[in-house]
Amino acid sequence: MSTFLGWNGLRWLNALTAIMVLLVMVDAFIGHYRSGFAVRAQYTPFLSGGAILIAAVLAGIAPHEGWALQLLLVTGAGGVLTGIVGAGYHHYYGITSKPGGYGWLLHHLMHHAPPLAPFALSAVGALAVLVATGLRGSGAVLGVPLRTAALCVVAVTLAGAALQATLLHYRGAFNNPLMYAPLTTPVLSAAAVPWLILTRGRWALLSVTVLFEATFLIGFVGLGMHLRGFDRMMGGLRVALPNVLDGPAMTAPALFSGFAAAGLTALYLL
């Protein structure tokens, strides 16, 4: 395992986990605040995510302490579970219990609880589990080598995030051509990862690297365009709260950058 600026790949992954769990919580808060925390379970992402954040910070400070890694492992697993249960909640409150039910599926998918969003917490939790396992000295999670496991998490997350983004961009009628961006390199990189894992070829490695790098930049383009998107709402960011609540997801595009960075870390430092 190689190091970069004094940190090995696992510690970099740990740092990325901490940043991304924060981003996930910001978007979850905006969405749940918008619906008024009508269901008590809407607080769970902050309990679970907050625990992961604390554990990741502690593991960053004390990467060799058994208790810190144990905490990261447990909170990470908790995050995975919270995400899965959350998706169930989103499905029930967002579709099943709404008027029209499945007859209005597309409408509910676009306008109510984003169906795939809770899995972002699962993905971050999976990274935390992976980091904790690695830092405790194990080279594999569930029998899968760390590098392969990390790349799989990244690929699946990018594909899911692209799907969710496409759904919401469809709701926005793709009113700007850049709204097709999540369908480009994130999807391609998700598709190229299995190619790399199966063939381990030089071209596959080069392709995945370039695609991850492009996805990293596209995430920042998304961040900028979403910021601009708030400003295309009535009154712009001058009336920040309603437009942030109703406008594009504030930090969601940054997850593309974050997971692309995690992918690059896995490629070159694990």
Binding site: L217, V221, L223, M225, R228, D231, R238, A240
Partner: peptide, 28 residues
């Protein structure tokens, strides 16, 4: 940005581009 009162028009277009380009530059 929160404090700038600015109507729709050319100035707003400058502002929007400035807002969009900021994070892009930061990412680069």
């Amino acid at each position: 940005r929160l404090g700038v009162d600015i109507g729709e028009g050319e100035a707003r277009a400058y502002l929007r581009l400035h807002m969009a380009l900021g994070p892009v530059f930061f990412g680069m």
